[in-house]
């Protein structure tokens, strides 16, 4: 797998996939996509980068340990359920606001943050596993 073509292309491919994964994540509410799929795409991006260039650059690029990202995701998802307390409705009930920013109407909601949480959990957990295994391959 250490062909020069793969090693040259991998960083660009990874960047492209990560951007694409965010796109898939955000459009998920209306079109095919969402946190789970987005997370899987991003995780495969990091796995590919790891196979091509080694685990250390991936870990450096991520900065946080992947499982930390997963923990953050779970935390975010749980927090997304909390505003419903203020509104006096059951935990995790979806709440929506539609502010207009620079003339564009934005749809912000608690399910969006929940979905971002899902994204982080999937990215974090799968990347942690993949990198852990790749680590061992290098030793």
């Amino acid at each position: 797998m250490n062909t020069i073509i793969f090693r040259t292309v991998a960083p660009y491919l990874t960047a492209l996939m990560v951007v694409f994964s965010v796109f898939i994540l955000l459009r998920g509410h209306n079109d095919p996509g969402g946190g789970f799929i987005g997370g899987l795409i991003a995780a495969s991006a990091f796995a590919i980068y790891g196979i091509a260039n080694g685990v250390a650059p991936v870990r450096r690029a991520l900065y946080f340990h992947p499982i930390t990202l997963a923990g953050f995701g779970l935390f975010l998802a749980a927090c997304a359920g909390l505003p419903s307390i203020l509104a006096g409705v059951p935990f995790l009930t979806g709440l929506w606001v539609f502010p207009t920013v620079f003339g564009v109407e934005l749809a912000l909601s608690t399910p969006l943050f929940f979905d971002i949480g899902v994204y982080f959990v999937v990215v974090g957990s799968i990347t942690a596993i993949a990198l852990g295994l790749e680590d061992r391959m290098e030793n």
Binding site: H29, D31, G33, G34, G94, P111, F114, D115, V118
Partner: peptide
């Protein structure tokens, strides 16, 4: 739930 993608709406909202 303001979403056209039923699968995703179920995942993040109805069955959150």
């Amino acid at each position: 739930a303001h979403g056209r993608n039923i699968v995703n709406v179920i995942i993040v909202d109805f069955r959150g």
